[in-house]
Amino acid sequence: MPALIEPDARLHGAFLQAHAEWGPGLHEDGFGIAPADDVDSPTGFAAWVARLARQATPDDGRHACTYRWIVEDGEILGGIALRHGDDDYVRWAGNVGYGIRPSARRRGLATWALRRILDEARTLGLQRLLIVCAVGNAASAKTIERAGGVFEGVQDAKFGPLRRYRVHL
């Protein structure tokens, strides 16, 4: 049975395995990896995990973000991020971002995690969320719709057109 947990520096090896499966780059949606993050070294990984924890209650005026990892039997299967604010980044990328490693896809994990992060959003008092996905990502569109997302339309974005959904909590 999977669990949705806070990022944990003790899972460095498991993260490296998942990261290698995605391939090089910073493309794991829901993990909050920035170009300056060193996720390969134990020290850099611990610093990155600490930064993710600080983002839940930032003191620098930026929007807050809650990160969770989807873990099962010590293996990281994916990640999901809940962005609490309404800044330019959220208006482009949405309040929720998630990614499932390739070998764990088609098991319903994204829908499962999205429903749980929506429960966290309710607890935080959020009432309406924007969730987006690439126009060609049919699996993600179905995930959002299964979690109650209502299609608003398509908007051009810097990396291509995005399907926009609203979830009312």
Results as ranks from 00 to 15, higher is better:
Leu126Thr: 05
Asn95Cys: 12
Trp48Arg: 14
Glu120Ser: 09
Val135Asn: 03
Ala47Met: 05
His84Pro: 03
Gly13Pro: 00
Thr143Leu: 07
Ser140Ala: 12
Asp60Gln: 10
Ile100Ala: 03
Tyr98Cys: 11
Arg164Tyr: 02
Ala141Asn: 05
His84Asn: 06
Ala34Trp: 02
Ala50Pro: 01
Arg164Ala: 08
Leu77Trp: 04
His27Val: 15
Gly23Trp: 06
Thr57Asn: 15
Gly136Tyr: 04
Ser103Thr: 13
Arg91Ala: 14
Arg122Leu: 12
Asp88Ile: 00
Arg107Ile: 08
Ile33Thr: 12
Arg107Met: 11
Leu162Lys: 04
Gly160Leu: 06
Tyr98Asn: 11
Gln17Lys: 14
Ala113Asn: 10
Gly30Pro: 00
His168Gln: 10
Arg68Gly: 09
Thr66Tyr: 11
Val96Gln: 11
Asp29Ala: 15
Arg51Ile: 12
Tyr98Glu: 09
Arg106Cys: 10
Gly32Val: 01
Ala34Cys: 10
Leu162Val: 05
Ser103Val: 11
Leu82Arg: 07
Arg122Ala: 15
Leu130Val: 07
Trp69Val: 07
Arg51Glu: 05
Glu21Asp: 11
Ile144Gly: 07
Ala36Trp: 08
Pro2Ile: 03
Ala139Asn: 03
Arg105Ile: 04
Val167Ala: 09
Leu16Ser: 12
Asp38Gln: 10
Ile70Cys: 08
Leu126Phe: 03
Tyr67Pro: 03
Glu6Phe: 12
Arg105Gln: 13
Pro161Gly: 13
Pro35Arg: 03
Tyr67Ala: 11
Asp38Pro: 07
Asp73Thr: 10
Leu82Gly: 04
Leu124Phe: 09
Glu6Met: 13
Gly108Thr: 01
Glu145Val: 07
Arg10Cys: 05
Leu52Glu: 03
Val135Leu: 11
Leu124Cys: 05
Trp69Tyr: 09
His19Cys: 04
Gly99Lys: 00
Ala104Arg: 01
Tyr165Trp: 06
Arg166Gly: 02
Glu6Ala: 15
Ala104Val: 07
Ser103Arg: 07
Gln127Arg: 03
His63Cys: 13
Arg116Leu: 12
Asp119Arg: 15
Val90Lys: 14
His27Lys: 11
Asn95Ala: 13
Cys133Asp: 09
His12Ser: 10
Trp69Leu: 11
Asp40Lys: 12
Leu11Thr: 00
Cys65Val: 10
Cys133Ala: 09
Gly108Val: 01
Leu129Cys: 08
Phe151Met: 08
Leu16Gln: 14
Met1Thr: 12
Glu145Tyr: 02
Gly32Tyr: 04
Leu126Lys: 03
Val39Thr: 15
Gln55Lys: 14
Ala56Gln: 07
Gln17Phe: 10
Asp29Cys: 15
Asp40Cys: 14
Glu6Ile: 01
Ile144Ser: 08
Val71Glu: 13
Asp40Gln: 13
Thr66Cys: 13
Val132Gln: 00
Gly160Glu: 01
Arg51Tyr: 01
Ala81Arg: 05
Ala50Gln: 07
Gly99Val: 03
Arg91Gln: 14
Ala139Pro: 01
Ile100Val: 11
Glu120Cys: 06
Glu72Gly: 14
Thr66Phe: 11
His84Thr: 06
Asp37Leu: 14
Arg62Glu: 09
